[in-house]
């Protein structure tokens, strides 16, 4: 009975070992949330990183989005109440109240917010039509965990579309869920914990970056041997 009344404690898990950098998540998000791709502004992005240490090279993709911090710097910075939190803790923006001071953008430690400019609004209305445009006025935009979907029991668009299941969605109030267990066991960790922002997005670190050093002499001699043959 108690569990039925309890609000969900939604969380997002990203496994950096399985992201292949296909950017399908960005495309799905763009379509779902009408983000201004023409200006290269996205609610979620996939960074590419090459890690080099000596002769060891690791390459991986790093998806990122709003962390929906529970100790929320953007919420505390917003002077008009445009940034607010839903009862489940999802951080949202009321575009009608946003004056575009960008205090929230500077306050966000995770680069999760961007300007939805006047030109973007006009272009969006051209593309989707005045009636179907979900961005009616200029405002600061950010990921909402696809609130309109998750409240209907669906997954966020990026999770639903991810071909490698690198993006995972869970309710931490359900400890039986294997994804929730990744968080509850401490295997998946939030970014920049020292800031005390208490994010709801967790990452599983890439094991490929812990690479064994390669004996380059062995490689060279094998190559030489190959040529000689």
């Amino acid at each position: 009975m108690e569990n039925k009344n309890k609000l969900p404690n939604w969380a997002f898990v990203i496994d950096l070992n399985s992201c292949i950098g296909c950017n399908a998540c960005m495309a799905a998000c763009t379509q779902e949330n009408q983000t201004p791709y023409w200006a290269e502004k996205f609610r979620t992005k996939v960074e590419q990183a090459e890690l080099v240490k000596g002769d060891n090279v690791g390459r991986f993709f790093f998806p990122r989005l709003c962390m929906h911090c529970q100790n929320t710097p953007c919420y505390y910075a917003c002077p008009t109440g445009a940034t607010y939190k839903t009862p489940e803790g999802v951080v949202m923006v009321n575009q009608d109240l946003c004056i575009g001071c960008e205090a929230c953008v500077t306050a966000c430690p995770y680069d999760a917010r961007y300007r939805y400019d006047y030109e973007d609004v006009v272009k969006n209305k051209e593309l989707f039509g005045e009636e179907f445009s979900i961005h009616q006025v200029p405002h600061v935009d950010k990921c909402t965990f696809c609130y309109h979907r998750i409240t209907k029991g669906l997954e966020p668009a990026c999770v639903a579309t991810c071909p490698t299941d690198c993006r995972m969605w869970t309710d931490l109030n359900n400890p039986e869920d294997p994804v929730a267990q990744l968080v509850l066991s401490g295997r998946a960790k939030p970014l920049a914990e020292h800031l005390g922002t208490n994010p709801k997005v967790y990452y599983i670190a890439p094991s490929s970056t812990k690479v064994e050093p390669v004996d380059m002499e062995e490689v060279y001699s094998a190559e030489r041997g190959g040529k000689e043959e």
């Binding site: 910075a77 917003c78 002077p79 008009t80 004056i99």
Partner: peptide
């Protein structure tokens, strides 16, 4: 005129007294 929301204290409506701009 949305700017006036900041000037005249949106804190009254949303209970958030933290923003330094306000």
């Amino acid at each position: 005129f949305k700017v006036l929301l900041a000037l005249f204290g949106a804190a009254v409506f949303n209970g958030n007294f933290h923003p330094w701009i306000q």
